[in-house]
Nucleic acid binder design. Structure first.
Length: 680
DNA sequence: GTTAGCTTTGT
DNA sequence: CAAAGCTAA
């Protein structure tokens, strides 16, 4: 009956009332319906894991109570199709506008575009905003108007932009509720009975919710931030910001973090506090990496499943589920790695340094396919974040132009003495090694028999011997790299012979199916210090097949692939599965469209900056403009869009695109590791 | 104390 | 590879 001007605010990973541009815009426009849609099936294989859902549950409750104190409440919907649920809510509330904030992961890019199209075709006004980043990805380009391809250059540009990030918005003082009398909330089941027991521990260490996020920020800025630079090497870290899960769910605005931290930096700079200034720079850099992860994802929407440097597609990963299991359980025989993996399993948390240690070990010593590791992180981390994790794993696995070289193996023994010099971290998480002297704690396999005996360590029985020696790993890695170059040369030869699709298309991601039985057996549970055992309930995190399912059409195909992959899992196919190719082509088209449309849809919601800044984008990709809601809204047209095509890369996707490589002088460093043979 | 030359590290 | 850190004259 009411509301000519009822607006829906579609909350996603922006679970806050403060500095939430979509919410503020809706409040300004009139009555408001706050909506959250839970549609995990849409995320394909990246459905949130147990701890992630635990966080979400509490964050939503917190948001709801904040909204209630402002005059409305959160409508929740359980759905398998966000867009149609959105439309249902529009109809049942009589809303005329839908506002939401941007996301940059590949699935959201497509879904949000669909949402915009469908709603617009129903005569609904849709506006979207930047709530997640300091600057939108399309605002950060090099001198030629191209996206950056190395982090340092990207971040330097961000920090020297001619205009500051928007200042944070205050929370609304009051919200006038829309008419939801015909719109019932669904109860969301984000945690089942078995999981409750496991999750009970989490609440001791973490407090989800936007106002708790603000408290965590204040605590950090007034405390550990000052020593951030000094402490960053310690595995045992009460010294990190602990903001990542808050940031993942958008409980905390990055713009606000940036703002407050910069103010602190100015203060310290005035006092001549060098250490403080340095700490702020380092902390901001980690914020920058988060920005960069979105930037990479937007520019290369396949980066969660394809290496950005093409030759990695042909790397002969070791497909060994035994290794994978040992890694997950913290039974690799390398104490620092094992301690990290057990901490991850027990708490859903890992210091950034240790994430690098365990993932580097995974990729370089075990030589397992990095996407397996990434998926495991996704399932177990409290702050699991697709964009950040993709960036991290690509960095580790040598598939970024500015990442670590693949042939440099980090030795967990030496890293142990660097990050955990007194062995305290290892002792906390590996009780079976607790009595070992520090001298041997990071390499028990070298310890004299008598020492081991005195410490109650029986290698091979209560603590494993290293499952792979570092020397053996180095040898195998070199061989693998030669093999990769051999395949790469062969692939190039085929392509140059004029064959349409050569080897190059048997992408690594499709060749290596994810193991199906990721759950750990009860009996093999790693020992854990004095925490009560967590109930093992992992079915909900069972890993599906290899592909991201972007569409329903595709999901059908996916199950076929799963079956065929079962049979030949250990093989890196030499020949291209034609069905797979068709799927890839479909994906490619979807993504191209999505990219193009993302360009459109983001442009249409963005706050206009100064004209000069925008003109580059506008002139290349926008042909018409029209007025809407008093704002100038650019409109995209295909004929004018060379820009978005470049973002996608060539027909082979991001990974193998020569254009990507061409823009990377450094990539050739990768190509030249130790003069590996280019042929045979 | 300084510094060339080597090792480590870094997104 | 380049910058930073370290060592041995």
């Amino acid at each position: 009956m009411s509301s000519g001007g009822c607006s829906i605010v579609w909350f996603r990973r922006d679970l806050r009332v403060e500095d939430n541009p979509a919410l503020s815009a809706a409040v300004r426009a009139g009555t408001v319906v706050a909506l959250f849609i839970w549609a995990p099936e849409e995320e394909g294989q990246y459905q949130p894991g147990r701890v992630s859902r635990w966080w979400l549950k509490h964050s939503l409750a917190h948001l709801d109570s904040s909204l209630r104190s402002l005059g409305t409440s959160l409508i929740t919907k359980r759905s398998t199709n966000s867009v149609s649920s959105l439309l249902d809510v529009v109809k049942s509330t009589g809303a005329t506008q839908v506002f939401f904030n941007h996301l940059y992961d590949p699935l959201s890019l497509i879904r949000d575009h669909q949402a915009k199209e469908v709603l617009t075709s129903h005569g609904i006004t849709v506006l979207s905003f930047n709530a997640d980043l300091l600057y939108e990805p399309w605002d950060i380009n090099d001198a030629c108007g191209q996206p950056f391809t190395t982090f340092a250059a990207f971040w330097e540009r961000c920090l020297s932009m001619p205009y500051d990030p928007d200042s944070p918005l205050l929370p609304p003082k009051k919200i006038i509720p829309g008419d939801v009398s015909r719109c019932m909330s669904d109860i969301l089941v984000l945690e089942d009975e078995l999981e409750k027991a496991s999750n009970a521990l989490l609440a001791r260490a973490w407090s989800p919710g936007w106002s708790n996020a603000n408290k965590a920020l204040t605590t950090f800025i007034n405390g550990p931030l000052l020593e951030y630079s000094k402490n960053r090497k310690k595995a045992d870290s009460a010294t990190t910001s602990f903001l990542s899960p808050h940031l993942h769910f958008g409980e905390l605005s990055v713009k606000k973090v940036f703002h407050l931290v910069c103010i602190k930096q100015i203060l310290w700079a005035n006092e001549g506090n060098k250490a403080g200034e340095e700490s702020v720079n380092l902390f901001l850099q980690s914020i920058g990496l988060r920005e960069y992860s979105r930037y990479i994802c937007f520019n290369h929407p396949n980066s969660h499943e394809r290496p950005l440097l093409g030759q990695l597609k042909l790397f002969p990963w070791v497909v060994n589920e035994g290794y994978f299991k040992a890694w997950r359980q913290g039974r690799t025989g390398y104490p620092l790695v094992d301690a990290g993996m057990r901490e991850l399993w027990a708490t859903g948390w890992l210091h950034d340094r240790i994430r690098v240690v365990v993932s580097s070990f995974f990729v370089k010593v075990l030589q397992l396919p990095w996407r397996w590791g990434m998926k495991y992180f996704w399932d177990t981390l409290l702050d699991a974040d697709l964009e950040s994790d993709a960036l991290g794993w690509q960095y580790i696995s040598g598939s970024l132009p500015d990442g670590r070289e693949l042939d440099r193996i980090d030795n967990p023994q030496f890293e142990g003495y660097k990050f955990d010099p007194n062995g305290e971290y290892v002792r906390r998480w590996l009780p079976e090694l607790a009595r070992l002297p520090t001298e041997w704690i990071h390499h028990p396999w070298n310890a004299p028999e008598a020492v081991l005996e005195a410490a109650g360590v029986e290698l091979g029985s209560n603590y494993p011997l290293p499952i792979v020696g570092i020397d053996a790993a180095e040898t195998r890695l070199e061989e693998a790299l030669s093999e990769m170059w051999r395949l790469e040369a062969a692939s190039r030869a085929v392509t140059e012979n004029g064959t349409e699709e050569g080897l190059g298309d048997s992408s690594e991601s499709t060749a290596v199916a994810f193991p199906q039985d990721i759950q750990m057996e009860e009996s093999d549970e790693p020992a854990r210090n004095n925490s009560p055992p967590l109930a093992r309930h992992y079915q909900d995190q069972m890993v599906p097949s290899i592909t991201s399912s972007l569409t329903r059409v595709e999901e059908e195909v996916t199950s076929d692939i799963r079956n065929s992959a079962e049979q030949s899992r250990a093989e890196v196919p030499i020949n291209v599965n034609t069905r797979q190719n068709a799927r890839d082509a479909l994906n490619e088209r979807m993504l191209q469209t999505a990219q193009r449309n993302a360009q459109l849809h983001y442009n249409s919601g963005m706050h206009m900056r100064n004209a000069a800044e925008d003109s580059a984008v506008e002139s290349s990709s926008i042909s018409r403009r029209r007025e809407r809601d008093g704002g100038v809204v650019p409109e995209w047209s295909p004929s004018a869009s060379s820009y978005s095509e470049q973002l996608v890369g060539d027909e082979n996707g991001i990974a193998s695109s020569s254009s990507y490589l061409q823009r990377h002088p450094q990539s050739h460093q990768l190509l030249n590791w130790r003069g590996l043979p280019q042929t045979g």
